[in-house]
Design a protein around this nucleic acid. Sequence first.
DNA 1: CTGTAATAGTTGGATTTGTAACTAACAAGC
DNA 2: GCTTGTTAGTTACAAATCCAACTATTACAG
Lengths: 149, 149
Amino acid sequence: MADDDFQLQYFLPYLLNQAAEASSLEFQQIYKSRYGMLRTEWRVLFHLGLYGQLTASEIGQRARMHKTKISRAVHRLTERRFVTRTRDDGDRRVEHLSLTRQGQAAYDDLRAVAQRYNAALMDTLDPAEAAVLRRTLLKLSDVAQEGFT
Amino acid sequence: MADDDFQLQYFLPYLLNQAAEASSLEFQQIYKSRYGMLRTEWRVLFHLGLYGQLTASEIGQRARMHKTKISRAVHRLTERRFVTRTRDDGDRRVEHLSLTRQGQAAYDDLRAVAQRYNAALMDTLDPAEAAVLRRTLLKLSDVAQEGFT
DNA sequence: CTGTAATAGTTGGATTTGTAACTAACAAGC
DNA sequence: GCTTGTTAGTTACAAATCCAACTATTACAG
């Protein structure tokens, strides 16, 4: 590639960031205005809603979120009675997190919103494109994660 | 879609965020360690490097960045002598920004890094996939931007 | 002209995040 | 059982971001 051939519109990290920000915006406003949640809190809520009881580190591994983020998100979610913590009997460092009835209700509501939201996004693509998009995004997440140099 | 069909791995905003974060990480470390830059500063630098002289609001429109972010990025970039500001004679609210020799050198260096970095990412995809990916990301940026509800 | 609105860019304060150090509990070697 | 190391999660402080209010300048209506 010649020096002057470089364009921001071909730089993948930039493109990905733009698309990610743009496509998160409206959904973000919903969980923010409806439940006063931050992105980290929404993510924790969704992981608990989808996978049931989890520990903070399990969420960290799945979501690739740093433990301090999770710690703070869990703190706020328990304050608002969306999540309960129970100590593990065998290993008292570990806490098992799960949704309260209220947390489950919020999750159900937001999951439905997310599904509709996602469907609207998907509708702007044709199915073949959507499949390729999904596959490449997963690949990039993994490849870039591991470091490819 | 049935209620229990929902999966985070199919939720586009989530996928996009994961891929964006993962694929930005290594590059971020380079401009951070090499020039002490933040993401906002790198973006401003790249826009000036690519398009030459611009005003802060022009950068804001192109990069979809809020003006306060740009203001602070420009401030730091001028402190470090990467960017110079010159008042517009016709309209004295406006400032024209351009790279100093030093800023141009940093841009040239980082552009080369970005090109190699991008090539490495692209190499994990086949060309057809890459084309679809790029097209869909651009589409999503626009569609989601305008609001599709 | 003069008052009102719009635009370019900056600043202040609260909120959020990142980094590193910390506490508490367990594990393993000796 | 005591030292050393590891893991789960929290906290403190600095850095970065967001939002709203601000200054300065231009535009425009009457």
